[in-house]
Design a protein around this nucleic acid. Sequence first.
RNA 1: GGAGAAAUACCCAAGUCUGGUUGAAGGGACCGGUCUUGAAAACCGGGAGGUCGGCGACGGCGCGGGGGUUCGAAUCCCUCUUUCUCCGCCA
Length: 429
Amino acid sequence: MIDIKLIRENRDLVKENIKKKFQDHKLPLVDEIYELDIKYREAKQEGDNLRAEKNNKSALIGNLMREGKKEEANKIKEEISLDGKRIEELNIKEEELANEIKKKMMVIPNIIDDSVPIGKDDTENVENERFGEPVVPDFEVPYHADIMENLCGLDKDSSGRTSGNGFYYLMGDVARIHSAMLSYARDYMIDHGFTYCIPPFMIRSDVVTGVMSFEEMDAMMYKIEGEDLFLIGTSEHSMIGKFKDQLLKRENLPYTLTSYSPCFRKEVGAHGIEERGVYRVHQFEKQEMVVICEPEDSMNWYNKMWKLTVDFFRSIDIPVRTLECCSGDLADLKVKSCDIEAWSPRQQKYFEVGSCSTLGDAQARRLGIRAKGENGNYYLHTLNNTVLATPRGLIAFLENNVNADGSVNIPVALRPYMGGIEIVKPKQK
RNA sequence: GGAGAAAUACCCAAGUCUGGUUGAAGGGACCGGUCUUGAAAACCGGGAGGUCGGCGACGGCGCGGGGGUUCGAAUCCCUCUUUCUCCGCCA
């Protein structure tokens, strides 16, 4: 959500930005909002004046009553009732206009950073940089589900019976690697100065609508029957919600948090849930990082944050690259975003394991996350980034560390979380 | 889950029974000063309070959220949320 002042003062900039995002159908909204805003301010001005008059008359009645001049007071009461109808009309008009403006403002995309490459959709995203050698081993790397099954580490038959498609039982060493990776990701972030946090895994509807649009909500969020509660799709939801309507102290900035949570997603949409494997599932676990900072610091944090994830993956021997999100593929709230993609030696291409975004003040404006400044309160900047989402991270790990015989090497960094073992071996079924 | 009590500005806190000069006492924090090598403490002095509209003068809204009664609501009524105390239940 952008500042409406931008539409009052610089409509061309807002329109130019919409064009850059190939959302030309939204262009008329800008002038519509501009006109509605003028009408709103007119109605407000008239209403304010009438209300001021009414307040004065009411105060007068108070004085007259105290002096015992009841008749004069009654006369003024009648006068007030004359304006009452118009005030009521204006109240309704103001509210309608304000709602209409807000509704339209919600779909105006945030102003993207100058550095964002212009492109229509995800096919035009731009590779920024590669980290580590994308190795193709001289044996065929099996499909991740097969690597897991070879280690007796995946049971989707049972999860199908208990929960349906999109769920999984991770077993034995594979389950342990999964947990080890998360524990390592947690400690990695703590070592980098972030505050560890376990948030609520369910949130109320007002928090949900604060962090996403209704369409996204329908496509992602599981609702708890009979309660005003939703299972979180990512801990970002509860982590940003934590700061909703808060006036933060400048001396406490920046907030650098790393949160763990399970994540639940309906995955209604183009791709849906695949039959085999655990790449796209209804339930996964994630270590996330969230930063709330001064506006002028957000670009620095953005760059620090994606580098943290890159270094994390490199420390467990997974080659990665960063893929800059082009203008058309960038979600409306975001100023700039990049995906962290891990190398898949099986597919011999990179695939998404995380994404790092700065939202500027858009999310903060929507949710009321502010700090007290010398010249009034102001909106802060919010950023989020994946440290590790797994089983997707687990897939990357297994493919890059599997040997020809199906055994999997445990990198030094993970060994403390795996009881010191250096390799896990296939089991007899 | 049951029974009570509460929610006031950045923080603490009066006002609510008995509706009307209450944008809302008093503190703290904040700013200026005295004292001090410096700081703290103490004392003296000070303006401003959130948000929206307006070039401004001003004005609207605003006492947890929403609704109602009234000419007028922090104050009365309904409702929701949260917190505290007690009881019950339970990893």
